[in-house]
Every structure is written in structure tokens, then in C-alpha cells.
Simulated scan of single mutants.
Amino acid sequence: MLGEEELRKLFPEYEDTIQPSGIDLKVDKIYEQTTGGSLIDNQKNLPEIKELKCDENEIYTLKPKTAYSVTIMGKTHIPVGYTMLYLPRSTLLRSFISVHTAVGDPGFYGTLQFMIVNNGEYEYKLKKGERIAQAVVFKVTGSGEYDGSYQEKNNINKGS
């Protein structure tokens, strides 16, 4: 796992959120599901979503027993030869809020999107810009490069 010094070199876009062993990731927008979806024979039919409105203080209210999609501030570029694992912040877990994530593949560039669930019996308030997850980075030997449907175009030189 990479530490603070290496993270600063590889991820200058996260300079203000780099921790000793990871990168804090902050809430940008939260979305509610409005339709169903499916995954059949690797054909993705994603549910439609709509942005959850926050109040005038940029605070979202998460309903009990409800799942939401959340995007993370900024674009993430994972260099080839590295992978990211995303872990929830313990404060959320202690508050009955779970964050569901996936693996960040080498070469991925784009907006990170996770699922956040209020598993509790009560509403939960979450302010835009709060840290909800931490990315930990590992070297990967013999890796290829992500070229999936969630890849966004970028101006970053490949392999950098």
C-alpha cells in the first residue's frame, strides 16, 4: 500500500485530502433512484436517477432504510500499474450509514460513484463536501489498463 509521500506524487489533484495511508474522498452530489434496472448477459440497463436536493446550507437528508448513489468531488486518474480500493469512513459506519464501493482499475479516469445507504431508523444529515470514503492505493504488477464503459475522456498522457 502506498503512503503519503508516494500519494502526493501520483495524485496531486487530491493534495488537500491526502492522509498518511490514503486519500479522503468527498461528497459532491447525491442521487435517488427513479426506475429499475437490469444486468442480463452483461447488458447494463442502469436505473434512472435524479439529483437529491440539498438545503440552503448544502445539507442532504438521507431517509431511513434508503439507498442513494453518490458522486465524489473531482475526477480521479489512476495511473497504469496502480489500483485503488475504497473504504468507508468509520464515523459513517458508527452512524448506521454504509458506503458500498468497487475496485478502481489501473488507467481509470473519471468520476467516482458509490452507493450510500442509511441503514438506520432515523434520518441522517450529510453535508456536501464531507469525507465519506478513503482510497487506498496499491501497486499492481502485470496490469492492463481499464477501457470500460465508465471511462471518461481526459487530457492526461496515458501511462503517466
Rank of each mutant, 00 (worst) to 15 (best):
Y68I: 01
D24T: 02
Y82Q: 15
T111Q: 12
D105E: 09
E130H: 06
L46M: 01
V136I: 05
K125D: 00
R131Q: 11
L112I: 00
S90T: 03
P88L: 10
T71K: 05
E121M: 07
I30V: 10
I97W: 05
D41P: 04
V80Q: 15
Y82C: 15
P88H: 09
P106A: 11
L62C: 04
L52W: 09
V80K: 11
V136Q: 00
Y86H: 13
Y86G: 03
L85C: 14
P20A: 11
Q19M: 13
V103K: 12
S21Q: 08
E15Y: 13
K44R: 15
K139E: 13
S38V: 08
S21C: 08
K139G: 10
L87D: 05
V136T: 02
E32D: 15
K127L: 05
V70M: 11
F108R: 00
N57L: 04
R131C: 03
P20V: 06
S95A: 15
I30H: 03
K63H: 13
E15I: 12
I97V: 13
F138W: 12
E56Y: 00
L62R: 00
V140L: 09
R94I: 07
T101G: 03
L62I: 01
A67H: 09
K139A: 11
G36N: 14
M84F: 09
E121Q: 06
T111W: 00
P20E: 14
I132F: 13
F114G: 12
G104I: 04
M115S: 02
E15A: 14
E32F: 09
G36W: 08
E56P: 00
K50L: 15
I59A: 02
Y122W: 12
E51Q: 13
E51M: 08
N42L: 02
K65S: 09
L93S: 05
D28R: 01
C54A: 10
L85G: 13
E121K: 06
S95I: 14
Y86N: 09
I59L: 02
D41I: 10
Y122N: 15
G107L: 05
P88N: 10
P79C: 14
T17Q: 12
Y68V: 00
K127R: 09
Q19N: 11
K125S: 08
M115A: 07
K63I: 01
V140F: 07
P64L: 02
T111K: 11
S21R: 10
L85R: 14
F96L: 09
T83V: 09
Q33I: 00
P79K: 10
V99T: 06
A67P: 14
I40K: 15
T83S: 06
G22H: 06
I18Q: 07
H77M: 07
M84V: 04
D105T: 07
P47A: 02
N119D: 13
Q33T: 05
L52P: 08
I49M: 08
A133T: 04
Q33P: 00
G74T: 00
V70E: 03
I97S: 06
F138T: 12
T17K: 08
P47C: 04
L62F: 01
I78S: 00
P64D: 00
P88Q: 04
N119V: 15
A133L: 12
K50Q: 15
Y109D: 08
A67L: 11
D16Q: 14
N119Y: 10
L87Q: 11
Q134M: 14
E130D: 08
K75P: 03
I49Q: 04
K63Q: 11
V27K: 02
I97H: 07
K127Q: 11
